[in-house]
Design a protein around this nucleic acid. Structure first.
Length: 770
DNA sequence: CCGGAACCCTAC
DNA sequence: TTAGGTAGGGTTCCGG
């Protein structure tokens, strides 16, 4: 998301505030008398502000409809906080407030005298103004990224990290013709190429002095404006781009969202994380004196801190830092009253129940169980039953629950494609504009976006992307579809398979009838709804999902949310970026650069001799063949020597590898590859998983740990796949075809070794055949 | 009846 | 404005 470079930092005027409060106030009708009246929300006290005149309300609404939510973030922050207080029904509020997070200790409230450590969970990226005092002497545009996490004591943290923006826009002088612009662009590109000519490494560029080899794009948002956008990596760029600056060309960042694509924003966030040494899921420490309290509160987190990107300390997951913070996990499920024979649609069918379970990571039982129902519902043992008269009250109560209980992770079954979008769209239909404030950024509304994900590995998946800043959505359905091959992915059959437990027996066709019955039939529905919220939590625990996914995030460095929403290639790219940074290498942006060839020869498959064998047949298996090849022969982007460089550089033949496919790579004495290093780390992690597996006794736990080591194996194999992905970010078929050529050579060699040794001539009973 | 293309699935 | 790779078996459909 983009902020304007010149934020509209108008203070909220008193008049505006009162309209805002009045306009958004919930005007619920008084509760009807009933045996459960005491548990009902009470009507507003008589002293509450009155609803605004219709004109003001309409204006307010129009404001809400404005799609461009990027610009007004700071304006209403204080106003909205006030509104939420007024907005709340007191009985409900006191009920919900029991579930608040533990209070901050006094020394954290009062100052920044001690260091703060938290486990990273989510990121939110903001490009635009940074506090200039964090970046003294910098001429480049500034940027902020927000990291969300949880402390050991269970406090929520939002850390605003200040750094540099990875994009520069050079505005072309007004009146430049398209020809002038392309000429201008060519000159710039020529200059950058020139500085690269001596590079012996084709695809990797040695750091700062060669940094200009970056993508230049021409952007023309409208007729009068024209820009050249230079994409650079963080944060060393500023110095190297100064050469361009000195030529008298204006430079600046632009606060228009049309400039950055969704994907480039994600890559930006990832690069920023890597430049700050932030690894997905690991512990981050802000040393005392190196951070400060945020001057303007932007989030709903308990601690909101500002710091400079270089002051963060990221801890390797060892000892104390391998532990898990007590994340708050919300598992929920909704029920809707669909019309007969139709799937529920938010335009017509009301939300009638929402069941919620709150659990602390690592604890066996939920500490909150409740269900919100439309109309009365008989009590359920151990469950807080909250009944409401209108759908609007249910939705707002749920929003308040999110706000008060402040979950870090939201789970459920098919929540990403159904429950969450349904709630959002239903609130839109009912015109409850204050509903979708569910994230941790003030005044940032939840947005829903249709997405399709297509991959050879995971197949074609259509889903919806619901942005809830600061909270990880972990949809158990998505996780199941990715991690297990099952014939049915319904919650019922998945639960039966993994838990030996099934859903409550309520057919969807009678849901509306149960709702229209009495408080007993609604109770039956509520039990069903609760069970549907309970099963995902059980699955999460039983399959050790938090543990395994945090492990994967730590190994690959990506935020946890990427693991369910993205493919393998972002994980490889993330590891590449991290290693490249350590080595002071820059990864070029090679978008659009296609190299004729797009497939390469794979493995040799030996013909099987099919038949029924009564005596066992010996099996020969390579351990991690492709990763081993890459490590053994130092295959990497930064060790590849292009043919034209072989003679020019006059490298001694004894320090070169010549692969069976004819490519040349240097040996590690000259330059150690970073792909081999990445593979070593992945295989080390796999080795740890296998050691855990050996110790585990329980067969189910073994199966889960086996799944973990398998995931790490696939990640290791994906490194090879990444280099062969011609539609990917950094294809290099020289590497991938070398890997398979070595593989073919090795299988032939192995076959020959075995067949030469095990012969009747050599004294064995038979001639071996592979 | 056969070959080829498209598609799905699986092994590694 | 996204997506790890190739080898290979099996099925279905279509055209000659």
């Amino acid at each position: 998301r983009l902020s304007s470079p010149h934020p509209l930092s108008l203070p909220p005027s008193p008049a505006m505030s009162s309209v805002g409060r009045g306009g958004k106030r919930r005007a619920g009708p008084p509760a009807a008398p009933s045996p459960l009246a005491a548990k009902r929300p009470q009507p507003m006290p008589p002293g509450a502000p009155q609803p605004p005149p219709p004109a003001a309300a309409a204006a307010e609404e129009e404001d809400m409809m404005d799609e461009d939510v990027f610009l007004d973030e700071t304006i209403l922050a204080e106003d909205e906080a006030a509104l939420l207080l007024l907005d709340r029904d007191e009985a409900l509020a006191s009920r919900l407030s029991r579930w608040k997070r533990p209070a901050l200790p006094a020394d954290l409230v009062s100052g920044c005298s001690r260091s703060v450590a938290f486990q990273q969970l989510d990121i939110d990226y903001v490009i635009g103004e940074s506090h200039k005092e964090f970046l003294p002497n910098s001429s480049g545009p500034a940027a902020i990224i927000r990291i969300f996490g949880v402390t050991r004591e269970g406090h929520s943290v939002c850390c605003q990290v200040h750094g540099f923006e990875p994009y520069f826009y050079i505005s072309c002088p007004p009146g430049m013709s398209p020809d002038d612009i392309s000429g201008f662009k060519q000159t710039l590109e020529a200059r950058m190429k020139e500085s690269n000519r001596n590079s012996s490494v084709q695809r990797f560029v040695k750091s700062v002095e060669l940094l200009q080899k970056q993508t230049i794009m021409h952007y023309q948002p409208n007729k009068s404006q024209s820009f050249l956008k230079i994409v650079v990596a963080l944060p060393t760029m500023v110095a190297s781009c100064r050469g361009i600056l000195e030529r008298g060309i204006t430079i600046g960042s632009l606060g228009s969202k049309s400039f950055l694509t969704y994907e480039s924003n994600i890559l930006f966030a990832l690069r920023f994380m890597i430049d700050c040494n932030i690894v997905g899921g690991n512990w981050i420490e802000l040393p005392a004196g190196k951070y400060r309290k945020a001057t303007r509160v932007m989030s709903y987190c308990q601690l909101e801190l500002d710091c400079l990107y270089s002051d963060l300390v990221s801890h390797a997951p060892e000892g104390e830092y391998s532990k898990m913070a007590p994340f708050r996990i919300l598992s929920f499920d909704i029920e809707c009253a669909g019309r007969k024979g139709h799937f529920p649609e938010p335009t017509h069918d009301p939300v009638i129940q929402i069941a919620n379970l709150l659990t602390l990571q690592g604890e066996a039982q939920p500490f909150v169980r409740n269900v919100m129902t439309l109309k009365s519902c008989s009590p359920i043992v151990g469950v807080d039953v909250m009944s409401f008269d209108t759908e609007r009250d249910i939705l707002l109560a749920w929003r308040d629950l999110i706000r008060e209980a402040d979950p870090d992770i939201i789970i459920g079954y098919n929540i990403c494609k159904f429950d969450l979008p349904y709630l959002i769209e239903r609130a839109e239909v009912l015109k409850i504009v204050e509903f979708p404030l569910l994230g941790r950024i003030r005044n940032s509304r939840v947005r829903v976006r249709d997405t399709t994900f297509n991959s050879r590995q995971y197949g074609m998946r259509e889903s919806k992307d619901v942005t809830v800043e600061g909270r990880v959505q972990f949809d158990l359905l998505q996780a199941m579809q990715r991690d297990y091959k099952l014939s049915s992915y319904s919650l019922n059959s998945v639960s039966a398979h993994f838990l030996g437990e099934q859903k409550e027996d309520v057919h969807h066709s009678i849901i509306s009838d149960l709702q229209n019955g009495n408080s007993e039939t609604r109770r039956r529905l509520a039990v069903y709804c609760l069970k549907d919220a309970y099963l995902p939590q059980r699955l999460l625990d039983k399959l050790m999902y938090i543990y395994n996914y945090v492990e994967m995030a730590r190994v690959t460095g990506v935020p946890i949310s990427f693991l369910l929403s993205r493919g393998q290639s972002i994980k490889v790219l993330s590891q590449l970026l991290r290693k490249a940074k350590q080595r002071n290498l820059v990864i070029p942006n090679i978008k659009g650069q296609s190299s004729g060839q797009d497939t390469f020869e794979g493995a040799t498959v030996l013909e099987a001799r099919a038949g029924f064998y009564e005596k066992p047949i010996a099996t020969l298996d390579f351990a991690s063949l492709y990763p081993s090849i890459m490590m053994a022969h130092n295959l990497c982007y930064c060790t590849l020597v292009p043919p034209e460089d072989v003679r020019k550089l006059n490298l001694p033949p004894e320090s070169l590898y010549k692969t069976p496919s004819g490519e040349i790579f240097v040996k590690p004495e000259l330059q150690k590859g970073i792909l081999p290093e990445i593979l070593e780390e992945l295989l080390a992690a796999r080795k740890r998983a296998k050691a855990d597996l050996k110790e585990a006794k329980d067969p189910f736990e073994r199966a889960v740990l086996d799944g973990r080591q398998l995931a790490l194996k696939i990640s290791a194999n994906s490194v090879y796949g990444f280099t062969g992905a011609t539609v990917g970010q950094l294809p290099c078929l020289e590497i991938s075809s070398s890997v398979t050529s070595y593989g073919r050579q090795m299988i032939e060699h192995t076959k020959k070794l075995v067949e030469d040794k095990f012969t009747t001539l050599g004294g064995y009973e038979h001639n071996a055949e592979v």
